[in-house]
Amino acid sequence: MIRIFFPLLALLVAGPLCAQNAPDADYDPDTILALKGLQRLDQRMNAIGYRLVDANASYCDQKTARTGLLLNDVAQYADQGTARFALGFDGPIGITAVAPDSPAAAAKLSPGNSLLAINNMAIDDIVIDDSQSSSEQPAYRRVDTINRMLRQMLAEGDVELTISEGGISRTVPIKPVQTCPGQFQIRVSADRSATADGKMVSVSSRLAEYFLADDEFAAVVAHELAHNLLKHRDRLDAQQVNRGFFGQLGKSAGRIRDTEIEADRLSVWLMANAGYDPQAAIRFWTRYGKEHGKGIFSASTHYRWKKRVQLFEEEIAKMAAMEPVDGKYAPPLLTEAD
């Protein structure tokens, strides 16, 4: 299990810059270790997220073009020199993760490659769109703008990426695949939490460390992805559900709990279709529940872990009674919504 040194987290996010950009700089080994640990978590999250949305694409009513790339901006880090050294970037924007069996992997792109241009548009010439990225911290707005532009280009077809590897540049054609919608990120935090906001699935770095295997990791990511695929945020907004303190009471609590039940039920189908062991959801919540009570959340909006396990067992039994088609099980919560 990867260990991240949380006292160093302040070194890993944007802040006052340390002048360590020279090639002979004396880089701090603990900071390098922490950066590489975070990159490994990013890579696991990217791989799991891609696998889930790709494997379940035929059951999603909306699709998005995807390459399997995860980009990173050295401006996100307080010590940009150490970040470049640890992550292997030549330029300001680099590839931090490539999902296995993705178009990016087929194009032989690798973590550490620097992104120089998209369809011959130089990265340095891309104007940051502050109006579209206003919800992001300033240091994240450049990569947010680039990601948005890349998604728009991919929606129109193939793209060409110019990358640098070891100082040698090459242009690579990428043919995207259509998957379920979804974005995934590791949120650097000392708490254990996972969230879904309708588009993004976020897992805290400390929770990501807690997983014993990728199947457990996938259980939590699939649960949050299920919230987004079932458009739970839109439903709760339409019901005028209070997400604050009063959301733990009365009708609001019951409506939130209904969405949590649905997300638990759908999650094991998403896992099974992506080749993850759905029994891992039972193993994870049993272990976590025994150690921490109700689980990640302690509010009345979530079942206690034993009832969650019961839900998983019921859904796994339904799958066992079905005949898969091409190795996949049609998730009732997605197919019934069509």
Rank of each mutant, 00 (worst) to 15 (best):
M1K: 11
V13H: 03
L17P: 02
A19C: 09
D24H: 11
D26V: 06
D26R: 13
T31S: 07
A34D: 11
K36H: 08
Q39A: 15
D42W: 12
Q43M: 12
V53P: 05
Q62W: 06
K63A: 14
T64S: 14
T64G: 04
R66P: 00
L69Q: 02
L71P: 12
D73I: 06
A75H: 13
Q80W: 00
Q80D: 03
G81A: 05
G81L: 04
A83L: 06
A86R: 02
G88A: 13
F89L: 07
F89T: 04
D90C: 03
P92D: 15
P92R: 15
G94S: 10
P100Q: 08
A105Y: 07
A105C: 07
A106T: 01
S110I: 08
N113L: 01
S114I: 00
N119I: 00
N119P: 02
I123C: 03
D124S: 14
I126L: 14
S131K: 13
Q137W: 00
P138R: 03
R141T: 07
V143E: 11
D144W: 13
D144C: 05
N147V: 00
M149C: 00
R151P: 00
R151Y: 10
R151T: 11
L154A: 04
E156S: 12
E156I: 08
G157I: 12
D158T: 13
L161Q: 04
S164G: 09
E165C: 09
E165K: 12
G166S: 09
G167M: 12
G167L: 06
T171R: 13
I174E: 01
K175V: 12
K175D: 09
Q178H: 04
G182A: 05
F184Q: 00
Q185W: 07
Q185S: 13
R192W: 01
A196E: 09
G198D: 02
M200A: 06
S202C: 02
L207N: 05
Y210F: 15
F211Q: 02
F217P: 00
A218R: 01
L229Y: 10
H232D: 15
D234T: 05
A238V: 07
R243F: 15
F245H: 06
F245T: 11
F246V: 13
Q248W: 12
A253K: 14
G254C: 01
D258I: 02
T259D: 14
E260K: 07
A263G: 08
R265L: 03
A274Y: 10
Y276L: 09
W285P: 03
Y288R: 03
H292D: 07
G295Q: 01
I296G: 13
H302L: 07
Y303P: 06
R308M: 10
A321D: 15
V325R: 10
E336D: 15
